[in-house]
Simulated assay, not measured.
Amino acid sequence: MQKVDLIATATFGLESVVAEEVRNLGYTDVTVENGKVMFRADLAAIPRANLWLRTADRVRLKIGEFKATTFDELFEQTKALPWAEWIPENGQFPVEGKSVKSTLFSVSDCQAIVKKAVVESLKKTYKRDWFEETGPLYKIEVALLKDIATLTIDTSGPGLHKRGYRELIGAAPLKETMAAALILLSRWKPDRVLIDPFCGSGTIPIEAALIGQNIAPGMNRAFVSESWPVIPKTLWREARAETHDLAQYDRKLEIIGTDHDEEILRVARRNAREAGVEEQIHFQRMEMKELRTKRKYGYLICNPPYGERLSERRDVERLYKEMGRVFSALDTWSFYVLTSHEGFEKHFGRIASKKRKLYNGNIKVDYYQFFGPKPPRPKPEESARDREIARVEEETC
């Protein structure tokens, strides 16, 4: 099968998470750079990567890469690339661009040069002087970094964070890709309880349910490359069939989302229903200070208010102190908190076991990770029935 070079773009700080996902799909020829994970694979990787990658922003097809310090170099080397292997005679091929620390700093000029070069390249194959561009979409990107031009075509369409379940969102939504990353970074296991005490529109609990049941995040959406003639329809059918075959719909999960706002919880319930995981999540109106649980071990993953505005800062700091008091009662739990507030640990009253720098949109944030003790392993002679009895006793004591 034809080999292709793909780029899974990633939010800063999540490159290693995306790379692990790519390898878990079975692709081993992987290279990681800032903001992207590059891998070489067969043509079937285009549908599979789009359907399965939870933390990547999008999947791009790499057409070529070269050094360009003049417009002539950019034009001639772009023209020499095999565009007709991908773009049909009626294809739409708009060009977008970006330039960082490069001699060719005018993005609009670079876009115009690339567009002209692609037209000239296609003329040689299709023997015509102009193109109607009424067919499938092939959005080209010219990205210049330190005079190296990388030419790609987007295979995803809308960003991969758009799973299709979140029609309604809260005032400050967390992207689905970031929510999935927080869960994957926590190493949460589906047999452990997970609570989000600031669940808002439900993104973290919903992404946890999708992960817990191994439901492909792109299962219920379309991708721009599905209409490309060069990718056989059979590859898309096989890739979608795989998502159904590997889903573990019967796996029971214990995921809880709480929030003080009943209206936003109605949105969360609707989103969970659209995602097909409403039975796996219990949403409940609750103030954070009321949080209690009889379960001895679990994960608490949340994205609380940051206090970005000066007028909100004192309220947020009081909230963090309250979180410290409430969470301290859960001394066998693991906590994972995303916030941009640099004084979080001071107000929370505890130093994180590990801290990871990320970006939530354009906001620089830290992911504070507080590791709890591991639950004891069941004794070899302990039966499944014994473990279930112990679990029920733990919940009712």
Score class of each variant (00 low, 15 high):
285 R>M: 00
132 E>W: 01
347 H>F: 07
190 P>N: 10
284 Q>H: 15
218 G>A: 06
256 I>H: 13
352 A>T: 12
211 I>A: 05
319 L>C: 13
75 F>I: 04
88 P>A: 07
131 F>H: 05
159 G>V: 02
370 F>G: 02
35 G>E: 05
274 E>S: 14
73 E>H: 13
77 Q>R: 14
244 H>Q: 06
43 L>I: 12
200 G>M: 06
238 E>N: 14
192 R>N: 11
302 C>Y: 06
111 Q>S: 05
322 E>G: 12
363 I>R: 08
254 E>G: 13
71 F>Y: 15
183 I>R: 09
97 G>L: 00
65 E>T: 14
266 R>F: 03
174 L>Y: 10
252 K>F: 08
85 E>Y: 09
162 K>A: 08
144 L>P: 09
113 I>S: 05
219 M>A: 15
390 A>C: 01
114 V>M: 05
109 D>Q: 13
16 S>L: 01
284 Q>E: 04
289 K>Y: 09
373 P>D: 01
388 E>P: 05
329 A>C: 05
51 L>I: 12
270 R>F: 14
168 L>I: 07
348 F>S: 01
315 D>N: 13
38 M>G: 13
104 L>S: 09
386 D>H: 15
296 K>D: 06
235 L>R: 12
304 P>D: 04
58 R>V: 15
337 V>P: 00
317 E>T: 13
240 R>L: 01
250 D>I: 09
82 P>H: 10
253 L>G: 09
249 Y>M: 00
183 I>A: 05
259 D>L: 00
165 Y>M: 01
53 L>F: 12
252 K>G: 08
